[in-house]
């Protein structure tokens, strides 16, 4: 296990040096801020863009704080997920394709240590980026709209964090099978899109789906009791463990000779 610690330090150093620890949190902070701000300035924006007839009164009911934060979460569902997938797609393949992974593989390091080091490092970066940005959005929401209780906020963060565990495991697992960045991103997003679409079309049959956690993180903001919460959480945790095992199994089949 000391090997895993060394590898996590390596991942940390790498993402500091290539700037991932700077640009990803900033990108999320901007994404989170822009939602409450655009909603707050919506009347002015409409006025500038629309050129409404003289004397027309815009009367949009001010949304509640819960609604604004839900809007932030739905931004994450699309743009956030896209960023998370794109920022994770090359963490394994670039080492594998250029051959630098050999210096690790030739040493007594288990596939378990390698995969877990990647998973933990990415997850920590993602959780921190997500949490900071969501708290910023919460701060703005409280100033501009109505107060949302911290309990609701953290409930929502908790549920969303489990979804992130799954998301990172999925991308890592896919990237042990494929060798190009674009195909890894494509397949990962494809799988997520199918799950989301299925939940949309046949919600009754998809109550177990990990994508369900995204909508439940929204529900957690609006009500205290969330329906059917434990089923998707249990399934997501199990699927995450399965995906990590799959990645470890697959890594053991790797051929390092370039054939």
């Amino acid at each position: 296990m000391s090997g895993m610690q060394v590898l996590i330090q390596k991942e940390w150093l790498e993402s500091m040096r290539n700037g991932k620890w700077i640009w990803l949190p900033i990108a999320f902070a901007i994404l989170a801020m822009s939602q409450p701000l655009t909603m707050y300035y919506m009347p002015q924006l409409l006025e500038i863009a629309g050129g409404l007839p003289e004397g027309a009164v815009i009367d949009i009911p001010a949304p509640s704080g819960e609604e604004v934060l839900s809007g932030v979460l739905s931004q994450y569902t699309f743009l956030g997920t896209l960023l998370f997938v794109l920022a994770a797609m090359n963490v394994i393949v670039h080492e594998r394709n250029n051959g630098s992974i050999i210096f690790i593989s030739v040493r007594p390091v288990s596939a378990l240590s390698y995969i877990l080091s990647k998973w933990i490092s990415l997850l920590v970066l993602y959780l921190i980026s997500f949490m900071i940005s969501f708290v910023i959005a919460w701060y703005y929401t409280n100033i501009l709209f109505s107060m949302v209780s911290a309990a609701k906020l953290f409930g929502s963060i908790g549920i969303y964090s489990i979804w992130l565990c799954f998301l990172v495991a999925l991308v890592l697992s896919v990237s042990t099978f494929l060798k190009s960045n674009s195909s890894i991103a494509g397949v990962s997003i494809g799988i997520l899109a199918i799950l989301a679409l299925a939940s949309e079309l046949a919600p009754v049959y998809m109550k177990w789906s990990p994508t369900q956690l995204q909508s439940q993180a929204v529900q957690a903001l609006q009500q205290t009791i969330i329906s059917d919460l434990w089923l998707p959480i249990t399934v997501t945790v199990l699927v995450t463990i399965f995906l990590l095992c799959l990645a470890i199994w697959r890594m053991k089949q790797w051929d390092y000779s370039g054939h």
């Binding site: 640009w23 990108a27 901007i30 801020m33 701000l37």
Partner: peptide, 12 residues
Amino acid sequence: LLMPIIVLQVIL
């Protein structure tokens, strides 16, 4: 209100 988001964009 807008300053933080502008500053972040400039930093990025």
